[in-house]
Design a protein around this nucleic acid. Sequence first.
DNA 1: TCTGGGGTCCTAGGACCC
DNA 2: TCTGGGGTCCTAGGACCC
Length: 387
Amino acid sequence: MFASCAAAEDPSLRGLPLVVAGDPGDRRSIVLTASYEARSFGVHTAMPVREALRLCPHVRIVPPDRALYERYSRQLFDVLRDFTPVVRPVSIDEAYLDLAGCPGLAAGPLQLASVIRRTVAERTGLQVSIGLAEGPWLAKMAADLAKKRPDGVLLLLARDIPEFVWPLGVEAFHGIGPKTAAKLRQLGIRTIGDIAHADPAAFSGFGAYGRRMRDLALGTDREGLPEDGPPVSISSEETFARDILAPEALHPHLVAICDRVAERLRGEGYVAGGLGLRLRNSDFRDYSRQGRLPAPSARAEDLRSEAQALLRRMPATAFPCRLLGIAAHRLVRVDARPPELFPDDAAQRRDQLWQAVTEVRRRFGADAVRPLGGQSARPRKPSRDTR
DNA sequence: TCTGGGGTCCTAGGACCC
DNA sequence: TCTGGGGTCCTAGGACCC
């Protein structure tokens, strides 16, 4: 999707090997997305940019632009909501739609899907693929298969599973990743059909999901759409150009990241009741600590003091540290926040102050107001709007 | 020249309550 | 010498997805 947005914005990029990635001068930059043209050179997602340049020296590198993708994403979901009110976004560019009761369904599901696909292309410039099925898991499998079809649409009924799904390797199973795939292969289970036919006892080592895997592969699982609700977390993290050796040296980054998370909370209308802090050391081991805020807040200083408390609880083995992440949890809509028992004038004034900061940033860019003592390793984009 | 950033969900163990 | 059982909530870590 990132590559499609870039090409939609700048048509001169169309048809070229293109990669969305961070600064190629940074050793730690990786490929976020590769266009189909770039992939034909062996370039793929998560590959270091340097490696991509070695495989394809003339590849065009475009920096990621979150605001741009969010704009396209909003347009996409707006189109989808014109077809059905039940749209459950799974990510910035994917959603589950309940088409039952949709007026266009009378002409048949495939016809409706083609109309949706055409409308999305006309109104956003994005090419989507659509999987049709009676449940989310099979719809997702169908969508993956639809990508390889010229019309981009595939309908998969439960009775089609043996023909289309069972021959696929276990890695193609939505929900099975590298770890589980390796465990299955150890048991001699190689295809999704093997999962369907395996003795249920074979899945005892896989927890609750083990039982479901088999039901899904058999087409007997009856799970509805994911529930609608507020997000579980809003987070920001940063990998440093060089590992950081001591907790004190983390401070400027902690300040900058807390400010970013707080800004997003306010921008999306939430306050956080809990906070999580994550460190990744040079051996790629992750450490996380979490805690509660004294009161739900979207103020940077409140997130910061909790983050500092969490940082003090981290073991020394979390250093040298390559990544710091902060996540806001227990999100509540600001307007649904329970009234404070002891209203605090100073706190209310700080909320007003932060609302003003949010407004200034909205009009003049994120860099118009910066936290004192904060430091970001991210390259600063030249501001387009310098009014 | 290793290995980003934003998420969700599950699990196991422990604290705590009645 | 003996110290139950059931339930909830929280935490840290890990698997997975885009």
